[in-house]
C-alpha cells in the first residue's frame, strides 16, 4: 500500500528538490506539498496522509500551529520537523508538541528519507493483509478486543481510510474529509481491501459510540441505496452469535478458570462449557513434542478445532481443563487469561 506524505515549507525551491529527490521512493510513498500550514490543513482534509514533514517558520499558519492542529485532529499522523532556525529549546518544544523527529537545515535528502521510511514502517508494525473482506476482518478485531489503528485501501478504487480501535471498540474513523460514522460507512462499503495494522490507537475518545455490527449493516444498506439495488440482498457478514450463559456447577480448577474468563470478558466470552477431561492428554502430549523440537519451552495452552460445532481451549495442569468455545470466541484473549 503506497502511503501519502505531506511536506510543508514556504521555500518553493526546497519543495521542488525534495519532491524530485524523494521520487525514488515512490513505490513506498507519494509526496504532496504545501507552502504553508493553512494549505496543509486543506490537504489533510482531502487526502489520507500518513506522515507530515513541516518547516516551522511560515505564513499564514506556522509549523507549531500546524503541529498542534494535527495532534488535535489527526493524532495518528506522525510529524517530522525540518527547520533552518534550530535551537535546543525549539527542538524540545517541537517534541513536546508531539513531533516524532526533528531535522536541522541544511540536511541531506537521504537522511530525511531514512527518517521518513523508519516512521512510516511503524504504521504497519502489526502486519499487512492483501485482498481481504473488510467486514470479516473488522469483526475479528472486535472479537479479539484489539487496540490498533487500521489503514485500509479499497482495491477497486484506490481510496484510503483509517479506523481506530480501542479494546475492540471502533472509536473513530477517517476518510479524506469524512469523519467518524460517515467515514466508517464509506470504509465498510468497500468489498476487498489491502490493510495495514499498527498496534497502537492514538484516539482516546470514542466518537462513534455504536456497535460495529450495526455500523457494517448500515454501511451495506447505504451502499445498496446508492447503487439502486435495493432488491439484492446485501453481502453482510454473519452476525456474532448469542453467547450462551456459562454454567456454574463445576469444582476447582474449573470454577477458577470460569471466574477469570467472566471477570475479563463478561458475556462476550463465547464460552459454552468448562470441564475436566483427561482424554485430551495424549493430544497435548503430542503437541508438546513440537515445542520441544523447536526449543520453545513447555506447552501452556492449546486451541484446537477438530471439525465439531464448537472448538476447545485446553490448559494442562495436573488434569486437563477443557474450555469449549463457540467458533467466534475471542480465542487469543481466552488463552491469555488461562496463562
Amino acid at each position: 500500500m503506497t502511503k501519502n506524505v505531506l511536506i510543508v515549507d514556504d521555500d518553493k525551491d526546497l519543495l521542488v528538490s525534495l519532491k524530485e529527490g524523494l521520487g525514488k521512493y515512490n513505490e513506498t510513498f507519494s509526496v504532496f506539498t504545501s507552502e504553508n500550514g493553512l494549505d496543509a490543513t486543506e490537504k489533510l482534509k482531502k487526502h489520507t496522509i500518513s506522515l507530515v514533514v513541516t518547516d516551522l517558520k511560515m505564513e499564514p499558519m506556522d509549523g507549531f500551529s500546524l503541529l498542534s492542529h494535527i495532534m488535535e485532529n489527526y493524532p495518528d499522523i506522525p510529524v517530522i520537523i525540518i527547520t533552518g532556525y534550530s535551537t535546543p529549546e525549539m527542538e524540545k518544544l517541537a517534541k513536546k508538541g508531539g513531533a516524532v523527529g526533528y531535522i536541522s537545515k541544511p540536511f541531506i535528502i537521504k537522511d530525511l528519507a531514512v527518517k521518513m521510511l523508519t516512521t512510516l514502517r511503524r504504521e504497519a508494525d502489526g502486519g499487512t493483509l492483501h485482498n481481504v473482506s473488510s467486514g470479516m476482518f473488522l469483526q475479528l478485531v472486535e472479537m479479539e478486543q484489539k487496540t490498533c489503528t487500521i489503514r485500509l485501501e479499497d482495491t477497486s478504487s484506490g481510496r484510503k481510510g483509517v479506523l481506530f480501535f480501542k479494546d475492540g471498540e471502533l472509536f473513530d474513523a477517517r476518510m479524506n474529509d469524512l469523519q467518524s460514522k460517515d467515514a466508517a460507512y464509506e470504509i465498510f462499503s468497500w468489498d476487498q481491501v489491502v490493510l495495514s495494522i499498527q498496534n497502537v490507537c492514538q484516539v482516546k475518545e470514542n466518537k462513534i459510540q455504536s456497535d460495529l455490527q450495526g455500523l457494517i449493516l448500515e454501511a451495506m444498506r447505504l451502499k445498496d441505496e446508492r447503487s439502486g439495488a435495493e432488491e439484492e440482498s446485501p453481502d453482510v457478514p454473519e452476525p456474532i452469535p448469542v453467547i450462551e450463559e456459562v454454567k456454574t456447577e463445576k469444582p476447582d480448577p474449573v470454577s477458577s478458570v470460569r471466574s477469570r474468563i467472566e471477570k475479563n470478558l463478561g458475556a462476550r466470552s463465547g464460552v459454552e462449557d468448562i470441564y475436566l477431561d483427561s482424554s485430551w492428554n495424549d493430544l497435548i502430549s503430542q503437541m508438546s513434542r513440537l515445542g520441544a523440537f523447536f526449543r520453545i519451552g513447555k506447552i501452556k495452552s492449546v486451541f484446537v478445532d477438530i471439525g465439531e460445532t464448537r472448538n476447545f481451549i485446553l490448559k494442562q495442569d495436573e488434569e486437563t481443563t477443557v474450555v469449549a468455545v463457540s467458533p467466534k470466541c475471542p480465542r487469543d484473549r481466552i488463552m491469555q487469561i488461562l496463562n
Partner: peptide
C-alpha cells in the same frame, strides 16, 4: 493429530 483442522499453541517461549 489427523483430526485437527486448526490449532493455536502457546509455549513458554513462543507460539505456533
Amino acid at each position: 493429530i489427523k483430526k485437527v483442522g486448526e490449532s493455536d499453541l502457546i509455549f513458554e517461549d513462543g507460539r505456533m
